[in-house]
Design a protein around this nucleic acid. Structure first.
Lengths: 193, 193
DNA sequence: TGAAAATGAGACACTTTTGTCTTATTTAAG
DNA sequence: CTTAAATAAGACAAAAGTGTCTCATTTTCA
């Protein structure tokens, strides 16, 4: 376990995740499965007091908003990396899945949380990201990875759902962490056959 | 499960659905997207007072339990019908999807509601249904519809998610009601190509 | 029409959650 | 060692949700 490096060495700030980061991580882990969880539950899961949570997030709404923005940023990071490689569309799809399936809880949280529609800041970023996914689908069609007669909306939805499928299959222990993205990719490109 | 026995009264409710049915329908429609919705919201969506809701369901827990059991029964009805036709596995899959995609909200509600794990009655019925799905996956493998090297758990999860994908794509207006099951079927059997 | 049943509205007590605050303790830095 | 910052614990009031109850009104059916 590499988790315990924090205290001894004086300058090792690199491995130390801030309390805020821990809270965000715990929050998304809980909220992805139980959107109605209380801040009590979230703080407890993060191993901090409820008051500490309020020191970092002024309200539940603020927590959810930051969570959404952080999820969007994490996914953006993946898409940026994938684009930089300038892969053919098919390989880009696999790379995208490899990067995003481990973020499955954040990804799913985004699609299910209603704040995505109410908060303008989040809403705008989310729409942009959905648009980018739609553009990617168009590329997939151009390069023959996806049949042209399938509606873009269906392709996007199917990708969404199989990302969540991959993450939750790993989480429930049914699928190995390194297999999930490949299974999603295989299912998308050639089905289950 | 005989759905039409409702009341002793001779003719009373022909075209009119019971308040209870309306409530169940509204509840699943709301809870599928917002699991934390209040009974106030549910009653309002059903167009009845909150007190009326309590006349039909003694508690939130009872409402959710009946909802879950009703969802399980609805899905059972589909599987019974599909089995009765004695179709080859591939055609059976399509028939199953055609029947279940319109029940997508109930299906999704079942998989996400935690009462499924806490209530013994629901839990037992749910496990049985999941087992039946797993058996069906085994049949799909035997008849060559699904490759033998794909884990059953992945196949089940993928079917689950694409059912939900179909229902929500219809709900959001992106996909025609009559296309959703076919798109899910096509995606499962040959991917998006 | 008239009686019985169902409903809408809302009052009420209770519980949980939320957001703010204070205080004692721990942790980090000088 | 000493000081300053961060934290856990918990008190507190306000808000929202739950479950029970009553009563006036509407609906239903005989």
């Amino acid at each position: 376990m590499l988790t315990a490096v924090r205290s001894i060495c004086p300058m090792a700030n690199s491995g130390k995740s801030t309390a805020k980061q821990t809270l965000l991580q715990s929050a998304v882990a809980i909220l992805a499965y139980n959107p109605g969880a209380s801040l009590q539950d979230i703080a407890a899961q993060a191993g901090v007091g409820r008051a500490t949570l309020y020191r970092h997030f002024s309200s539940r709404e603020a927590l959810v908003r930051e969570l959404a923005m952080e999820a969007i940023a994490a996914i953006d990071q993946v898409t940026t990396q994938v684009r930089a490689q300038e892969l053919p569309a098919k390989e880009a799809l696999l790379a995208f899945l490899e990067g995003v399936v481990p973020l499955g809880d954040r990804f799913h949280f985004l699609g299910s949380e209603s704040s995505v529609y109410t908060e303008p800041e989040v809403s705008m970023a989310y729409k942009r990201q959905m648009q980018e996914l739609d553009d990617f689908v168009t590329t997939l069609k151009k390069e023959g990875v996806v049949a042209p007669d399938i509606p873009n909306a269906w392709v996007s939805t199917a990708i969404d759902m199989l990302i969540w499928a991959g993450w939750s299959a790993v989480e429930s222990g049914d699928i190995a962490r390194n297999d999930a993205a490949k299974l999603a990719y295989r299912t998308l490109t050639q089905g289950l056959s």
